[in-house]
Structures are given as C-alpha cells and as structure tokens.
C-alpha cells in the first residue's frame, strides 16, 4: 500500500470511528431497546389473546412487515412534517427503526412464548400465582432462552440497516465513508474498510450472543439421560 492511500485510509478510519460509529451504535442500541419493549408487549397481547389489542397487533405487524424500511424512514422524516409533525433526523431514525424492528421481534417473542408448554402456566395458576407473575417468573425467562438466537439475528441485521439513515441526512458510518470516497475516488479500499468495520461490530454482537445464551441457561440443568 503506498503512502498516499495509507494516508487516505487513516484519515477516513479516524473520521468513521470518531464521528460515524457513535451515531451508528446509538441508533442501533436505542432503537433495539425500544423495539424489544414493543415486541414483548405486542407478543404478550397476542399470547394472552386480549380482544381488540390482538387485532391491532396483527395489523401493526402486517403493515410494518409489508412495507420497505427505507419507505418507513422517509415517511417519518419527510412525510410527517406535511401534517405538522416535525422530527429531527436522529429521533426520526430511532422511531422508524424501533417500530420496524418491534414488528419483526414481536413474532420472534410470540413464537418463543408459545414454545413454553401451556401446562406450566396452568400449574403456576394452580399454586395461586397471578397470570402476570406466572408470565414474569416462569414463562418469559424460558421464552427468552428460545428467542435469543433470533433476536440477535435481528440485532445484527439492524446494525447494517442503519446505513439507510444517510437517506434522511443522518451522518453515520456509511455517510462519512461516502463523503471520503467522493473526495478521493478510492471506492474499493474505503468500502472494503467500511465493510470490515460492520463485520467487526457484528462479530462483537455474536460474542455478546454467546454470553447472553450462557447467562440465560445458567440455571437450567443440562439434559441428562433419563434416570429411569
């Protein structure tokens, strides 16, 4: 690698990590946290078969999964001002991502809740526990264990999807790289550099997934041969 190129890489890397990375991480972490809350509520509503709310949940999931994320971003940032709702770019991105990811994760959570045998819920009710307590103490902890691999799928997917925010003027890792490419015409080097950075973040998240799985499995005995 010649010195000129090295200089370009060094400068771009510094810029991306210092200015872009925090935005990308902020978008990812905050949006995903909100998405998890939405997902859990929407899944619980359906699991408990609450009237009206269940239908609303299905409508929400249908609408969000059936439309492109990019369009959702543009609607929140560019279209809402037309009806008098003006939101800054970063909050707009967080809103769009949370709502989008919430829809996908709610299906993961619903499947996970349903994977816990209903008999355990009945047993909890029969020892006098309230439905809420049974959910919080028995069902959700077990459901989470099932949901974690899929939730991390969504999380990793979301890190990369945040690159769409350059469309609504948010300066993230992708936007900064694009600017450097525009100045230097080093397409190959700089986009590969960007790809490697996303890969690094995804790798970290994969490691986080392992830790999460180990944590959630901590108090469950390993399947052992039946002691008949």
């Amino acid at each position: 690698m010649d010195e000129r190129l090295w200089g370009i890489v060094e400068k771009a890397l510094k810029d991306i990590v210092e200015k872009g990375l925090p935005t990308t991480m902020l978008l990812t972490v905050v949006s995903f946290a909100i998405a998890l809350v939405i997902a859990t509520l929407v899944a619980l509503v359906q699991h408990a078969r609450l009237p009206v709310l269940t239908q609303l949940s299905r409508f929400y999931i249908w609408l969000i999964r059936g439309t492109p994320l990019l369009v959702q971003l543009l609607v929140v940032y560019y279209a809402l001002p037309a009806i008098g709702i003006v939101i800054d770019a970063v909050p707009a991105a967080i809103i769009a991502f949370s709502i989008n990811e919430g829809a996908y994760c709610s299906e993961t959570m619903r499947a996970a809740l349903e994977s816990v045998p209903v008999g355990q819920t009945e047993a909890g009710l029969c020892v006098g526990m309230s439905y809420t307590k049974v959910m919080l103490r028995i069902v959700i902890p077990q459901a989470l264990r099932t949901a974690v691999p899929n939730l991390f799928n969504s999380l990793i997917s979301m890190v990369k999807d945040t690159s769409l925010v350059s469309n609504i003027t948010v300066v993230d890792m992708f936007m900064i790289t694009k600017r450097h490419v525009g100045r230097t015409y080093e397409f190959l080097t700089l986009y590969v550099l960007l790809a490697l950075l996303y890969l690094a973040i995804s790798t970290l998240m994969t490691m986080l997934q392992r830790l999460a799985e180990r944590f959630l499995n901590r108090n469950v005995g390993r399947e052992v041969k039946k002691i008949a």
Binding site: G119, G124, V127
Partner: peptide, 27 residues
C-alpha cells in the same frame, strides 16, 4: 386446592425445590 397434572407440568426453569417453594413464596 392442589392440582396434579398428567404431564407433571413442573416449572422447567426451577429446581425441584424451587418448584415447591415458588407458590409458597410468590402466592
């Protein structure tokens, strides 16, 4: 009242002891 099910329905995330104490502590 107590209820004993055909398929046991123990709480999978609790030990044998935890299964018995759960109702006592929570309910």
């Amino acid at each position: 009242t107590g209820f004993v099910f055909q398929s046991y329905n123990l709480f999978a995330n609790r030990t044998a002891l935890g299964n018995v104490t759960e109702g006592l502590v929570v309910a």
